[in-house]
Design a protein around this nucleic acid. Structure first.
Lengths: 166, 166
DNA sequence: GTTTCAGTTGCGACTGGTTCGCAGCTAATC
DNA sequence: GATTAGCTGCGAACCAGTCGCAACTGAAAC
């Protein structure tokens, strides 16, 4: 039984932007289309999230944003993240709490994907596959559950770390 | 293409103990076998976790434990949970942060299972299926990743809530 | 283009879950 | 039963995230 799968290997917490299987629609366009007020702060934050090559947590997002707008506040970052999350425009990840209890965020993709976190080197890999899509469908149909968000996270050791461990 | 799946529906945050697909080995025996010091506090906590019909968070576990040993401390609960988690004897869950940022715990089962959390009524359903097992194998073999922990969580609306919403 | 005001922001104080350092205690080994 | 590594309770500390409020601002209505 065949299925198509795609693994995007990344450097430390980095994320492949050229993965052919994953695309991210424009968050700014989505906000405008939904008549959500566009403020300077939101534009800044949304652009950072959209362009980031890695998964950002709130503190890192604030840090980057402050380079352009030193006045921007923590609360605004948290409120914007909550807004985007509630509207289903970004996904929240725990990445197996590989580095404290913070949350990570990424623009929602056209296709759900799994995150694999290496406990040793901290690399995050993204994994998409038709088996995953099938599992989701199966879960929904067998349980009568209407799925809104799916989070599949895996912790373990990446190929490279397994080799170097010996 | 057929696959065997099993859904355990639960009352509010409760957990079916009679699910035929899931068994939980004795945590106390595991501790003894691994020469981990057995203290009165650990015995108490481990037994509560093992016997609990629902997913417990640290505060609830402390509360239950204090009925038998009013002197037991918060820190001991957190330290014991960390111990069990590090040894791979319990799984940590976020349950989609359906009720604050706390973590939930359950004795590790013979078979991985997914948790489906209803955003409306808070019910948690457990879902096991051979498709899930297959996906895990596929992920490991395609990426070279050695899987240690898997967490598949789903948020949405359960059958009953979907009906009553209309 | 000006007015209007609901919605957004920065601020600082606060919360809730979790962790830490330490002195005293105790389970397991000898 | 003596020894001691390691566990416990305690209180203080930590950290990510939240809240109430007064001032500000984007965009709808004129």
């Amino acid at each position: 039984m065949l299925s198509s799968a795609h693994v995007a290997t990344e450097s430390q917490l980095g994320r492949s932007k050229t993965d052919p299987a994953i695309t991210r629609p424009s968050l700014m366009k989505e906000l405008a289309a939904r008549h959500i007020r566009i403020t300077a702060q939101r534009r800044l934050l949304v652009n950072i999230i959209q362009d980031s090559p890695r998964h950002l947590d709130a503190a890192r997002l604030l840090e980057i944003a402050r380079k352009q707008d030193p006045e921007i506040d923590r609360a605004t970052v948290y409120r914007t993240l909550a807004l985007l999350k509630d509207r289903g425009l970004i996904d929240e990840l725990d990445l197996m709490h590989i580095e404290g209890e913070k949350h990570y965020y990424e623009a929602k993709t056209n296709r759900d994907h799994c995150h694999m976190a290496c406990f040793r080197c901290g690399a995050i890999m993204e994994y998409t596959s038709s088996s995953f899509e099938k599992l989701k469908k199966e879960m929904a149909s067998q349980s009568g559950f209407q799925i809104r968000v799916v989070r599949l996270e895996v912790g373990g050791f990446c190929k490279r770390c397994r080799k170097s461990a010996r």
